[in-house]
C-alpha cells in the first residue's frame, strides 16, 4: 500500500517542492530570520492585486520558457540553451522592428516571426550536432548559448547602441512598433495571448498528432522508437527548432514590450529560462501541467523581491529553491532512464 502510494507520479515532484521549501526555511533560520514571515512576504508580494498585471506577464514568460525546455524533454532531450535562444530572438525582433521602417501593423508580426525563425534555426543546429557528430544536445545547447548571448551583447554595445547613453542598450523603438497592450495594462500584452496560444498548440500536437506521439515514444524508449522506424534525428530537429522558435517569440515579446528596447542582460537576469526549465521538469514535460507548475515559480520570482523588502531575506533565495527543485527532478529523470534501460522482466 505504502509502496503503491510512493510510486504515484506526483510524489517526486511534490516532494521536491516540499523539500526545497524546507531547505529554504532552514537557510532562513540559519541566517537568524523568520521563515514564516519570509514565505508570507513571497505570497503577499506575488498575489497582491496591484501587482497582478506584472505577475501575469512573468507567468507568461515562464510558461514560454517552460515550453522551450518541455518540448525537447518530451523526447528525453534537455535544452539548456534557452538564454541564447531568448536573446537572439530579442535582438532579431529589435532589428526588424526598428531598422526596416515598416508600419506597426506589419512590423510587429514580422518582428515576431523573424525572431522565431532565427532562434528556431539557431536551436535546431544542436540536432545535427547530435546525430552527425555525437555531441549530446544537453551539451551543445549549453555551449552554444553563451555564444549567442555574446553576439547580441556586441550588437547592442556597438552597431545598435543608443548614442550618448552610458547603458548598453538600444534606443527606444518607435511607438508604432510597440506590441499591443491589453486595455490599459502596463505589462500584460497581446504577447501573453500568443504564449497561451502556443501552449494550446503544444498540448494538441503532443496528444493528437503523429509527430507528438513519436516524440513521446522516443522519450519513453528510444530503442523502441528506432525499432519501429522512427527517426530520432529528425524528431530532434523538429523539437529543437520549435523550442528555439518559442524562445525567440518570448525574447521578441519582451523587447517589444515596455521599456521597448533591447537592454543588455535584461532578458537573462530575471531568470525566466531557469524558472521555465524548473517548471518543465516539475511538470515532467507534460504540456497541460507546465502552466500550473509555472505558477509556483512565478510566485517565487515575483515574491522574491517583496520578500527582500519586507523580510530582509535576499531574493537569491528564490534561485536556491529553484535550484533544489531542478536537481531533485533531474536526478529523477536520470534514475528513471537508467532503470528503464537496465530493466528486464522474467
Amino acid at each position: 500500500m505504502i509502496a503503491r502510494l510512493t510510486r504515484h507520479p506526483a510524489v517526486v515532484p511534490i516532494g521536491a517542492v516540499v523539500l526545497a521549501i524546507l531547505i529554504g526555511a532552514v537557510v532562513i533560520l540559519l541566517a537568524g530570520l523568520n521563515p514564516i514571515d519570509a514565505y508570507a512576504a513571497v505570497l503577499q508580494g506575488s498575489l497582491d492585486v496591484r501587482n497582478l498585471d506584472y505577475t501575469f506577464s512573468v507567468w507568461g514568460f515562464i510558461c514560454g520558457m517552460g515550453l522551450v525546455a518541455a518540448i525537447p524533454l518530451r523526447m528525453g532531450e534537455f535544452n539548456l540553451g534557452g538564454n541564447g535562444q531568448l536573446v537572439l530572438g530579442g535582438i532579431t525582433a529589435y532589428v526588424v522592428a526598428s531598422q526596416l521602417g515598416l508600419p506597426g501593423i506589419v512590423a510587429v508580426p514580422l518582428a515576431l516571426i523573424a525572431a522565431m525563425l532565427v532562434s528556431g534555426g539557431f536551436a535546431a543546429v544542436s540536432a545535427p550536432l547530435a546525430t552527425r557528430f555525437g555531441i549530446p544536445i544537453i551539451i551543445s545547447t549549453l555551449l552554444l548559448s553563451p555564444v549567442a548571448v555574446a553576439v547580441a551583447s556586441y550588437l547592442v554595445r556597438f552597431p545598435l547602441a543608443e548614442k550618448g547613453s552610458g547603458n548598453a542598450q538600444t534606443p527606444v523603438l518607435p511607438e508604432d512598433a510597440h506590441i499591443w497592450s491589453l486595455g490599459d495594462l502596463r505589462y500584460t500584452t497581446v504577447g501573453l495571448l500568443l504564449i497561451i496560444a502556443v501552449m494550446v498548440i503544444f498540448y494538441i500536437v503532443d496528444s493528437r498528432s503523429a509527430v507528438g506521439f513519436e516524440l513521446r515514444v522516443t522519450g519513453a524508449n528510444r530503442r523502441f522508437g528506432e525499432y519501429a522506424g522512427l527517426k530520432p534525428g529528425r524528431l530532434a530537429l523538429g523539437a529543437m527548432g520549435s523550442a528555439g522558435a518559442v524562445a525567440g517569440l518570448v525574447g521578441a515579446i519582451i523587447v517589444l514590450s515596455s521599456p521597448y528596447r533591447f537592454i543588455d542582460g535584461a532578458l537573462i537576469s530575471p531568470g525566466y529560462t531557469f524558472a521555465g526549465l524548473a517548471a518543465a521538469l516539475l511538470a515532467g514535460g507534460r504540456p497541460a501541467l507546465v502552466p500550473v507548475t509555472a505558477i509556483l515559480f512565478t510566485i517565487l520570482q515575483v515574491g522574491g523581491a517583496s520578500m527582500e523588502r519586507t523580510a530582509e531575506v535576499p531574493r537569491q533565495l528564490s534561485d536556491v529553491l529553484q535550484g533544489v527543485v531542478i536537481v531533485i527532478l533531474a536526478l529523477r529523470v536520470v534514475l528513471d532512464r537508467r532503470r528503464a534501460g537496465a530493466g528486464k522482466d522474467s
Binding site: 506521439f213 515514444v217 524508449n221 522506424g229 528503464a340 528486464k344
Partner: peptide, 23 residues
C-alpha cells in the same frame, strides 16, 4: 528484448499497440 526494444513500459497498451500503425 521485449522491455528494451519491443515496448515502452511506461506507455499504455493502446500507445504500444498503435506505434507504427499511427499514420
Amino acid at each position: 528484448d521485449r522491455r528494451g526494444e519491443g515496448s515502452a513500459v511506461t506507455m499504455s497498451i493502446t500507445e504500444n499497440l498503435s506505434l507504427g500503425h499511427h499514420r
